[in-house]
Computed example of a mutant assay.
Amino acid sequence: MGKNKFAMIGNGFLASTIADAYCRGAMPEYELTAVFGIGDERSQQIAEKCSCKVAQTVDELLETKPDIVVEVASIEAVQEYVIKVLKHGIPFVALSIGAFVDAAFYEKAKQTARDHNTRIYFSSGAIGGFDVMQTIALIGGAQAELTLTREASTYRDTPVFSQEVLDSGEKGLLFEGTASEAIPLLPRMINIGVATSLATIGPDQTRIRIYGDPNMPNDDDVYIKVASDQASAEMKIYSKSSILVGWSVVSLLNNLVSPVYFY
């Protein structure tokens, strides 16, 4: 029996992380067929390392007949390509989950997957715990919240940036609201909030708090709480870099072909 084929949309740090894992033998059941992304040089580097094709378009990527397509690019890439991939009956792994905060788009993607007998997979990315979060939400009466703290200057050039907090030398609240309200303000930073909301009680109900801390290293500090009268879960996740996000895709893909599935 041949190996399972996968292709990647995206050629940045996360794509390189997955490619490195692949070359290290961490994905023994897979063959990487193609990589597609902005900038041929980065795609070529991955292709040379992994002996795969550089696709100039998603259509070229699909011509390599992957069994699954992995997005490690952007919200815009998900919005542009997920429907096309699903219409080919190919499962789609999304890291840029913020694309699905749009309820109409989310429903369209889900219906397309149903119509073509395939699936969308949300990788756990930098947080994990989707299984227990979803289980608690199913019991009923749950509330969900996520708190993200980053070094204050990393929010510069975003609508939530506060020079006052940066100059104060103290941790300060930059945003508080719903996941639906947060994603337009921080489309690159709050995918984790959208993921939490879709796994639990929805983007309009899940609460998001964002803090800036002038004294914090340039890392992510994430706290998630999902609670009902019957059960609760609290998770604190620290990630020094986004390497955890790339490796979560490796873990997901391995799970999908394993005789034992860790949910």
Rank of each mutant, 00 (worst) to 15 (best):
P184Q: 09
A195I: 09
T154N: 07
R209Y: 12
I139A: 06
G172W: 02
S168W: 10
V160H: 05
P214N: 14
G140Q: 03
L174T: 03
T158S: 13
S153K: 15
R207W: 13
D204R: 12
I190V: 14
D204H: 14
N215K: 12
Q163F: 09
R207T: 14
V194W: 11
R188K: 15
I210C: 12
Y211T: 11
I190H: 01
I139M: 10
I183G: 02
R156V: 14
R209C: 14
G202N: 06
A182K: 02
Y155W: 15
L198I: 13
Q143M: 07
I201D: 04
L148Q: 11
L173Q: 07
P187G: 05
P217Q: 10
L173P: 06
F175P: 05
G193L: 00
G140P: 06
S168N: 08
G169K: 11
G172P: 01
G140W: 10
T154P: 10
T154C: 08
K171R: 15
A152V: 06
M189T: 06
M216V: 03
S162P: 00
L148Y: 10
R188G: 14
T178V: 04
I192H: 09
Q205P: 11
I201V: 15
T158N: 09
I190G: 01
P217S: 07
P187A: 05
L166V: 10
T178K: 04
S153M: 14
L173N: 06
G141M: 01
S153R: 13
G177P: 03
L146T: 10
G141A: 00
A182E: 05
Q143K: 13
E176N: 04
I201T: 12
A144E: 05
E164M: 06
A144M: 00
P187L: 05
L198A: 07
I183Q: 10
Q205Y: 11
Q205N: 15
T206P: 08
G212M: 04
A199G: 13
G193A: 04
G177R: 06
P184A: 11
F161E: 02
A179H: 06
E151P: 09
F175I: 00
L185D: 04
G141L: 02
